[in-house]
Design a protein around this nucleic acid. Structure first.
Length: 612
RNA sequence: GCCUCGGUAGCUCAGCGGGUUAGAGCGCUGCUCUGGUAAGGCAGAGGUCGCGGGUUCAAAUCCCGCCCGAGGCUCCA
């Protein structure tokens, strides 16, 4: 809503003729003296809240001007994205009522008329003002969510225990999760440890030239991220996911999409193009649902599993919510939907996906580092008690449960695995939901056994959660280890540099290069520190870069043909043959994706993106 | 978005009750050292003091706005 506010000695206006069909009845010409005239354009997306705020702002500036008389004057020329006339008129009337309630003497010029006017503006600095109210409509889901009523429990395979009655003595992280979810966390003025690490290890960094929450990934970060992406994708394909790719932006005027937007509590990035308002996807749902709607589906195909690794999904989170790799505005999310014929099939499928998610977290190195939270409506719980407790049983430890009195979201049950970081905050990783709305909303149909078309129940699973968030959790976990006196590291298959060859002096460089090439040729991610530095200094640097195997070669190694290997994790130096080391690394990374080092192998040739 | 705190060399930070050429360590460049498992020695280069505006004879230092970061409110992948 746009407001042009003028403090006038007088204004005369005269309705000439109706401009639109929905024009109001006119009460004829009017003269208002010593008043504030407010020219108003009501814009697309303005709601009652905008009108109310507009009146509050008007009231405030009228108090300042010591004015008590207001003329609300519909004026379409302040905006090129006007609301429909009926909506505009409704809001103008609302403004009139609200202003009266605030004790203002209100006049209002008729809506929908061609009018002429003449006015005399008061000559003082505050006499002319322009205001813009709203601009962004808060999705209804965000507003409604705040009012949502829910009850908290600890759930075990057998029972549901009110949170206050549960003995947390052996469940520290679960208690932290419950605290975090139910209450507000206390203020801690600390830079998150993973932010420090992501920079120091040259993985990722903030990009001030973009929008907050959009990161840059250096070669090592891109490598780690690629490996995780590849791993998760392989696991999902193995489970039966069909990998697809869909657009990153969608028309917000599309009927199914706009109604879905109102059911999802998040803010969107908007892009304008050729008169369209496009929003950037916050998940892969749209693309996959639109694809499923156009597909020919039979009960024989169910469950149908569509998978996409979104690079990116976008959510315009509030500034204060953004935090390193933990919470971003652009993030990479594996998103796998399963279209299920009925609730029984959906439940069975959800069990498979819970297992898949556990395997994936185990594989990336977060096995055992998460707590389950499970949320459901009261109705669903009462009808599916056994199933809910069975899910909890699969994870094998008590979990946090939230029970909603009524269904507000599109799902009836949702679970997440939460990682608890060193600051006691919970972050969701894997998640799955049982969606009972969107099959119908998007017009997705399958032909059932009885030749009737039905809409499927849809599961929304991210087996790992956002890839960036997995990186966050791995770094936070390493930090926790460090605090406990252990060596902070990543799983070997994710280490940017698995092995580094260091010659004792320049004369051993050629031999060192041979050793490096043998390792490289066997699929070990290796490099060579050929800089003119002391041995100690080069070892120190390798340690700080979290290189797992530090291979030193000098006179003795040249003679014996064996190498000296410093194992950073086991904290020991061993002598072995090159083949032995290769075998050991291979065993460490078995079954995991491999990528070559995307950096010059010689340290002397390598630029620094972020100093240690 | 709002509230609180911060932004000085590539990095980490000192200086900031206004006033000569803005400092340190690390990193970088050069020289020296040919060194056996977490920092060898010497020298040098490098700064729009976040950006813009204001106050002042004079601003890194005081004031305002903006940008970026951290924390909170809030919410999630």
């Amino acid at each position: 809503m746009k407001l042009l506010q003028l403090h006038v000695d007088y204004i005369d206006y005269r309705p000439i003729e109706k401009e639109i069909e929905g024009a109001e009845a006119s009460s004829g010409p009017e003269r208002v003296e010593d008043a504030v005239v407010c020219f108003v354009s009501v814009e697309e997306g303005d709601d009652d809240g905008v009108a109310v705020r507009a009146v509050e702002e008007l009231k405030a500036s009228m108090d300042e001007l010591k004015a008590s008389r207001l003329l609300i004057y519909p004026y379409a020329h302040l905006s090129n994205r006007l609301a429909p006339p009926s909506r505009a008129l409704a809001l103008l009337r609302l403004m009139e009522d609200k202003a009266k309630e605030r004790g203002i003497e209100v006049h209002r010029a008729p809506f929908g008329w061609l009018k002429s006017f003449e006015l005399k503006l008061k000559a003082h600095p505050l006499a002319e003002r322009f205001k813009e109210i709203g601009g962004e409509a808060v999705p209804k889901a965000l507003v409604a969510e705040e009012k949502l009523k829910s009850y908290w429990y600890i759930i075990t395979p057998e029972e549901l225990i009110p949170v206050d009655e549960f003995d947390f003595s052996n469940y520290g992280d679960l208690e932290r999760l419950a605290r975090y979810e139910m209450a507000k966390s206390r203020a801690e003025h600390v830079i998150p440890p993973h932010v420090e690490l992501m920079k120091r290890l040259e993985l990722a960094d903030y990009e001030p030239g973009s929008d907050p929450g959009n990161m840059r990934y250096y070669p090592k970060g891109r490598l780690v991220k690629s490996l995780l992406e590849e791993y998760v994708t392989e696991k999902v394909v193995e489970y039966g996911g069909m990998e697809v790719e869909t657009p990153v932006m969608y028309d917000s005027a599309h009927p199914s999409l706009s109604s879905y937007l109102n059911r999802f509590p998040a803010r969107q990035y908007m892009v304008r193009s050729e008169g369209k308002e496009l929003f950037l996807r916050f998940s892969a749902c749209f693309g996959q649902f639109l694809m499923a709607k156009d597909a020919e589906l039979s009960y024989r195909h169910m469950p149908v599993r569509l998978y996409e690794l979104t690079r990116y999904s976008f959510r315009r989170e509030k500034r204060g919510e953004l935090s390193g790799l933990r919470r971003l505005r652009a993030f990479t999310m594996p998103d796998c939907h399963a279209l299920c014929a009925d609730m029984d099939q959906a439940k069975e499928e959800m069990v498979r996906r819970l297992k898949l998610s556990m395997e994936v977290l185990e594989g990336v190195g977060l096995g055992g580092s998460y707590e389950l939270a499970i949320r459901f409506t009261k109705d669903f719980y009462e009808q599916n008690r056994d199933f809910v407790h069975r899910l909890v049983g699969l994870v094998g430890k008590p979990a946090l449960a939230e029970m909603w009195e009524k269904r507000f979201f599109y799902f009836v049950l949702k679970w997440e695995f939460n990682f608890i970081d060193s600051l006691g905050r919970a972050s969701a990783l894997s998640t799955d939901q049982i969606d009972v709305e969107n099959g119908e909303r998007f017009g997705i149909k399958y032909v059932d056994r009885d030749n009737v078309k039905r809409s499927p129940i849809i599961l929304h699973n991210s087996p790992s959660g956002a890839i960036e968030r997995v990186m966050f959790a791995l770094l936070e976990k390493a930090y926790k280890d460090m605090k406990e006196g252990k060596v902070p590291t990543l799983p070997t298959w994710l280490l940017p540099i698995q092995a580094r060859v260091i010659p004792v002096s320049g004369v051993h460089l050629e031999y060192a290069r041979e050793v490096m090439e043998r390792l490289d040729g066997s699929g070990v991610r290796v490099d060579l520190d050929d800089r003119e530095e002391t041995l100690s200094k080069k070892v120190r640097r390798a340690e700080m870069e979290w290189v797992r195997y530090i291979v030193v070669v000098g006179e003795e190694e040249v003679k014996s043909g064996r190498i000296s290997v410093r194992d950073r994790v086991k904290r020991e130096v061993r002598r072995m043959g090159v083949e032995e080391l290769i075998k050991e690394v291979k065993k460490e990374v078995e079954g995991k994706p491999f990528r070559r080092l995307p950096l010059p192998k010689l340290l002397s040739k390598r630029p620094t993106f972020h100093p240690l």
